[in-house]
Structure formats: C-alpha cells, structure tokens
Nucleic acid binder design. Structure first.
Length: 430
RNA sequence: GUGGACGUAGCUCAGCUGGUAGAGUCCCGGGUUGUGAUCCCGGUUGUCGCGGGUUCGAGUCCCGUCGUCCACCCCA
C-alpha cells in the first residue's frame, strides 16, 4: 500500500451522518433571504491580492498573516478569499451595477484563513453573507438584524445574544483614536505586551483585550459612543429605536470593534456561550466608504457574515439537527430469477411512487444478511421477492417497525399496497 | 505564531513501575435448508501516528516530527 494522503489541516469533510443539519440550514436560509427580497450572487473564490489588502486593510491580522496567497503561472498575486464582502463589492463595480442603484444580495460559500484550527475555527469554512448596497440606513441596518433574529427563531437556536455599537464616521473615529492613544500612553507602564504592540497599529483593539489585568485601565478609557459625530449619533439612536419597536433585545457594547478596517457607523455581533472561545456566530456592520475606496461610485453599504460551521454546531447542540432521511422500503431479493427481476420491479415502483425512497438490496447476500441490512437502513417496510414469489406473481410485504404480520400482494397492486401501509404507519395511533 | 492534553483494530477504548498487543462494536458465517433489532457459537482486521535514541528487550522511557483537540491570539 502506498502512503496515505492526509487531509489538509483545518479543512474538513462533511459526512453523510452530518449532512442533515447542513441541508436544514441551507433550506432555511434560502427561504428566509427570499422572504426579505435578497437575491443570490455568486462570485469567484480567488481574487487579486490587492483587492483584499485595500478592502480589509493592510495592517489587519487577516491580511498580514492569514491569507492563502500565491502566484499563478502568469506571475499575478492571487488570494483565496478570506471573506466575501470585498469580492461582492468588486463584482458590483466590475459589472457597472452602482450609479445610484440599490442591491440586496446574499452569497454562501467557502472562505479561507490560515489560522491554527480549534473548535469553531477552520482554515476552510463557510459563510453566509448578506449585503445591502445603496441604502444609507438605519432602517436597513435594523431589518438585517431582524433577518438574523428570525433565522435563529426558525432554526430553534436560543443561545445567541446581540451586541451593537457605532464606530462613527472615519473622521470621528480618527479623532477618537487620537484621544485613546494619548490615554493609553499615560498608562503605558500598565499595558501588557499585546496592548503596547496594538498602540501603534490598531489601538481600538486594545479595548477588547481578554486580559483581566487590563480591565481597570480599559474601563477608564474614553468611550467611542461618547465621541461620535452628530449624524452617527442620530443614526445609532434610530437603529436602537427600530430594534426596540420590533422587540429585538440587544446590548450596547461600546467596546465592540471590528477586525476589518472597512466598517463605519453600525457594527453588530451575535455571540454565543456555547462554542468555547470562538463566540461570534454572525457579525457585520456598515461600510459606507468601502466601495469608493475600491474605485467605485461612492455608495453606502451594510452587511453581515455568518459562520455556517458555528451555526451547524449550535443546531446540533440544540438537538435540532435532523438525521438523514431513511429509506421507506428495503427490497430483499433471493434466487437467481428474482434477483434478476428485482431491478426492473423497483424501477417500476419508483415510477409509480416517485416520492418514496426505495433501497434495493445490491451485492447479494443471504436472507439473514439482507434483513439485517433492511433493519439498519431504517426502512419502515421490507418487500421480499424470491423465486417462489416471482413464480406466483406476488411479493411479500413485511412491516419492520411494528408487530403487524407479513402479507402477500400481487405484483400489479404492489405500489398501491406499499403506499397504503406507509401512510397508515405514518398516521398517529388512534 | 505560543502553550497544554492526546495519537493502540474501520469505530470507541483498555494495556500497572519496560518482557514482543486486548475488549466492546462493526463486518462475515453458522445456530434458524427463506426473515432483521435480542441471544448463543465461530471468523477476519493492527507497520501501537512517523523517524531516531536508550535497553538484552520499547505500545510503555528520551529526543524530534506530523496530526487531533482545547486555550492564547484572531475572528465567522
């Protein structure tokens, strides 16, 4: 045997045993986004590296150390997308879709970040992305949050809560940033090494340090919410009022900042206590300057990204992950003639009962083995076709999940008999 | 990138202070010449993650390496 090929670290297979939760989430999402008037868009997984550098920010962790970047045969620097917003905005620009138009878009697919894998964090992971472009808000901000809230409700996920904040405009944020830097400089001796490093690059990130020794200093720092420009303050107040009016509870977290540079004004995050340290399930915000920054017609935008693996994990934990649907009928065949006739019989049954699932015994096996497989398949019913039955033009029908006895049925009436037993079995007991 | 725990049969795991591997499950056959889940009997399955080292002898000790999980970090 040759040496076994390893899977790539942090890139997982979704096996049939787990697929039920994914399919449920997928179906739920498609129905939901349609009911809010969002349209699907599909964009490439690979883009020019400069797109992400310009959109996300050169000095963010994602760009600095997490991107899968490579040169193609022509020498261009390409990158596997670490997030979806940049590519979608690029698509709007490339296809001339701006010029004052509005777009409500959704997109789902794999993202790639080279991080050390742990629970809820993988190198290839799937995100659901929603983007509303051309709408300045705050009404659309509120609706987007309501959409996410409705998804949790429909999926039966309860262990999530909402935090919101406003980052203001780039100008007000810059002014606040200067205040923050001078505050932390006064207390520089008390800062840990991480925070000192951030003081240069991204001082806002000091605010969500998890180091308990930093809490006192952070608590004394000026608050972003106290230094917003008047328009942003008004925008944020209107968002809060809209959420109040539709009964969505939230917590204002003045220290909620984002790791991607393009955000402005509204930011929000749905967090959970059920996933260990990867607690963000869905997060997003407004990016009014991004499109102009990428060379497009200046257009406001707001959106969020949801980590599908994390949602699936919450579904599983909540016991809302349905098992894969089992077969309805397992067909047992025995003897040379009956085995040969089995395929044709089951093909006919599939014509007559297209909604039912038939599992024909393949690969032979004696009766004992075939019934064992029938049992393990989860089928409600076994249909038995032996040479003896075939000669008499009948098949035996045996319920596998109750004590009702086995009966025989002429082949032309078999489909009707199967349907009758299955619907009878599905009906609640009187 | 840093730290901790762990890698033994397809799967879940046992294997005490070193003496050349074991259970359950799964799968297959039989008990039941054509009837599953239960029960009984039998059978197949291992480069003990990989590479070095110590030793008469290593699954067990040491070093390295790869992987998994968790935390830091980061984020969805």
């Amino acid at each position: 045997m040759t040496v076994e090929i390893q899977p790539i670290r942090g890139m997982n297979d979704v096996l049939p045993a787990e697929i039920g939760a994914w399919q449920r989430l997928d179906a739920c999402v498609r129905e939901l986004v349609a009911s809010y008037g969002y349209e699907e868009i599909r964009v490439p997984i690979v883009e020019h590296t400069t797109l992400f550098k310009r959109a996300i920010g050169e000095y963010t962790d994602v760009v600095e150390k997490e991107m899968y970047t490579f040169s193609d045969q022509g020498g261009d620097s390409l990158t596997l997308r670490p997030e979806a917003t940049a590519g979608i905005m690029r698509a709007l620009i490339s296809n001339g879709m701006l010029r004052g138009q509005r777009h409500k878009l959704w997109c789902v697919g794999p993202m790639f970040r080279h991080e050390r894998p742990q629970k809820g964090r993988y190198r290839q992971f799937n995100q659901l992305d929603l983007e509303a472009v051309g709408l300045p808000g705050p009404d659309v901000d509120a609706e987007l949050i309501a959409l996410a809230a409705r998804l949790w409700r429909r999926l039966g996920i309860e262990r999530v809560r909402l935090e919101i904040n406003s980052l203001g405009t780039p100008e007000s944020r810059r002014a606040y940033r200067d205040m923050l830097v001078s505050y932390f400089r006064e207390h520089e001796s008390a800062l840990d090494s991480d925070s000192r490093r951030r003081l240069e690059g991204n001082p806002l990130r000091i605010l969500d340090s998890k180091n308990p020794q930093m809490h006192a200093i952070i608590a004394g720092a000026p608050l972003l919410t106290d230094h917003l420009d008047p328009e942003s303050r008004e925008h944020f107040a209107a968002l809060c009022a809209a959420l109040d009016s539709i009964g969505i509870s939230y917590r204002i977290n003045p220290r909620l900042v984002r790791g991607l540079d393009y955000y402005s004004r509204t930011v929000f995050e749905w967090i959970t206590d059920a996933l260990g340290s990867q607690d963000a399930v869905c997060s997003g915000g407004r990016y009014d300057g991004l499109i102009a920054q990428l060379g497009g017609e200046p257009t406001p935008g707001v959106g969020f990204a949801m980590g599908m693996e994390r949602v699936v994990e919450l579904l599983v934990q909540a016991g809302k992950a349905p098992p894969g649907r089992a077969a309805d009928v397992y067909v047992v065949v025995s003897g040379a003639r009956a085995s040969a006739a089995g395929l044709g019989l089951v093909e006919r049954l599939r014509d007559e009962l297209p909604a039912r699932r038939f599992d024909l015994n393949l690969g032979g096996g004696n009766f004992k083995a075939q019934f064992r497989r029938a049992d393990r398949s989860g089928a409600a019913l076994a249909v038995i076709l032996g040479d003896d039955e075939l000669a008499r033009g009948v098949a035996a029908v045996k319920p596998l999940r109750n004590e009702a006895g086995q009966s025989e049925c002429p082949l032309p009436e078999l489909a009707a008999a199967i349907e009758a037993v299955l619907t009878g079995a599905a009906a609640p007991a009187e």
